[in-house]
Computed example of a mutant assay.
Amino acid sequence: MTDTSSSRLAGPKPAFRASEELAGRLQRVHVDLIDLHIQGKQAHWNVVGRNFRDLHLQLDEIIEAARTFSDDLAERMRALYVTPDGRAAAVAEQSSLPAFPSGEVDTSETVDLIVERLYAVCGTIREVHDAVDEADPTTADLFHSFLEKLEQFAWMVGAENRVAEKTEPRPVHE
């Protein structure tokens, strides 16, 4: 008779465990999404000017999406045996987003600042996407849904500062 008690205690082996490289790529997106949420709140609280109410409410949508996406990604990371780091110090140190200004910010400037940050997060996702897709297509599928919504937000918010048939979307510097 074979003793199987030690194998029962060890438990089942995970089907997939993220490599350090994959974990690092997921962490990069995770902190950018958290920072987008935080900066969105800063903008939400301090935006003033024309079309204030519409932008104030639109920022709520962006904030909620960023918070949901960061949570979805963190839970995916845990499923892959990666420990996400969403502490304030980690976000401040690792985020690729530029800092949001303090104090009141005019609606027109807020539009440009938020669009820049939306595209910054999209840039991070696109930068890591192919390597993530190769290592874990399921997580890449999450990234697809994030990109779809974040780029839609950027288009919708950015349209606020455009004049039909007279201005182009503001260039994004990556």
Rank of each mutant, 00 (worst) to 15 (best):
M1H: 10
M1W: 10
S6Y: 10
S6D: 02
S7I: 08
R8S: 15
R8Y: 15
L9K: 05
A10R: 13
G11I: 13
G11M: 12
P12K: 11
P14L: 09
P14I: 06
R17G: 05
R17S: 12
A18M: 07
E20M: 03
E21W: 08
L26Q: 06
Q27A: 08
Q27P: 10
H30I: 03
H30P: 05
D32M: 14
L33F: 03
I34C: 07
H37A: 03
H37C: 01
Q42D: 01
Q42L: 03
G49K: 07
R50L: 08
F52V: 05
L55T: 13
H56F: 10
H56T: 02
Q58D: 15
D60P: 01
E61W: 05
I62R: 00
I63E: 01
E64A: 15
A65R: 09
A66F: 03
R67I: 05
T68S: 08
S70T: 15
D72W: 08
D72R: 14
D72Y: 07
A74P: 05
E75Y: 04
R76Q: 00
R76Y: 03
M77A: 06
R78W: 00
Y81W: 13
D85Y: 08
R87Q: 13
A89C: 02
A90N: 03
V91G: 04
A92M: 06
S95K: 01
S95G: 02
S95H: 03
S96P: 11
S96I: 11
E104G: 14
E104Q: 15
E109R: 10
V111Q: 08
I114P: 02
R117Y: 02
R117P: 07
Y119R: 15
G123H: 11
T124N: 11
R126F: 13
V128M: 02
D130S: 11
D130V: 03
A131P: 03
E134L: 08
D136S: 07
D141W: 07
D141N: 08
L142F: 14
L142I: 07
F146A: 04
E148T: 15
E148C: 11
K149Y: 12
L150V: 04
M156R: 14
V157N: 07
V157H: 06
N161C: 12
A164G: 02
K166P: 00
E168N: 04
R170E: 09
P171N: 00
V172T: 01
H173W: 07
H173L: 09
